[in-house]
Amino acid sequence: MAVGWAQDGAVQEQIDANVADAVKRVREQMQSGESLTHCEECDEPIPEARRKAISGVRLCIACQQEAEKERASTSLYNRRGSKDSQLK
């Protein structure tokens, strides 16, 4: 059953699109290959346990946390914020 101006299945299509976008972003951010022994940002040694746990690691924990903060603050358009206005 459609709600307002939305077509049947519009809510599920919106959910599927959000999930697909999130999976695509994560796959693009995944690293592969051999891990570095020193951080490419600050040149601090990367602990061996981290190098073994994450293949292709390039940053130390502190620099990785900072990069994730920056990435979160510059995230893409949030579809969920406008979902109600689009579906009604």
Rank of each mutant, 00 (worst) to 15 (best):
A2C: 08
V3A: 14
V3D: 09
W5C: 13
Q7E: 14
Q7Y: 07
D8I: 09
D8S: 11
G9V: 01
G9M: 01
Q12W: 05
Q12L: 15
E13I: 00
E13W: 02
E13P: 00
E13Y: 01
E13Q: 10
Q14I: 10
Q14C: 11
Q14G: 12
D16R: 11
V19M: 06
V19W: 02
A20K: 14
D21C: 02
A22Y: 07
A22M: 09
A22F: 09
V23W: 01
K24D: 13
K24H: 05
K24E: 10
R25H: 08
R25Q: 14
R25P: 01
V26W: 06
V26F: 12
E28T: 06
E28M: 14
Q29Y: 03
Q29N: 13
M30V: 08
M30S: 08
M30H: 02
Q31M: 09
Q31L: 14
S32H: 09
S32N: 11
S32F: 11
G33M: 00
E34S: 15
E34N: 07
E34D: 12
S35Y: 01
L36D: 07
T37N: 11
T37S: 15
H38R: 15
H38Q: 13
H38S: 14
C39D: 03
C39V: 01
E41P: 02
E41R: 12
E41S: 15
E44I: 04
P45G: 03
P45H: 00
P45K: 04
P47R: 10
P47E: 14
P47I: 07
P47Y: 02
E48N: 07
A49Y: 08
R50S: 11
R51G: 00
R51Y: 00
K52G: 05
K52Q: 13
A53Y: 04
A53E: 08
S55H: 05
V57F: 05
R58H: 06
L59M: 05
I61W: 08
A62I: 12
A62C: 08
C63P: 02
C63F: 10
Q64P: 04
Q64D: 15
Q65H: 09
Q65G: 04
Q65W: 02
A67T: 04
E68N: 10
K69Y: 04
K69Q: 11
E70P: 00
R71T: 08
A72H: 07
S73L: 12
S73F: 07
S73M: 13
S75I: 04
S75M: 05
L76I: 06
L76A: 15
Y77E: 12
N78E: 11
N78D: 15
N78T: 08
R79I: 03
R79P: 12
G81W: 02
G81A: 13
G81D: 12
S82E: 14
S82A: 09
K83D: 12
D84C: 07
D84R: 09
S85D: 11
S85C: 06
S85N: 07
K88C: 01
K88G: 11
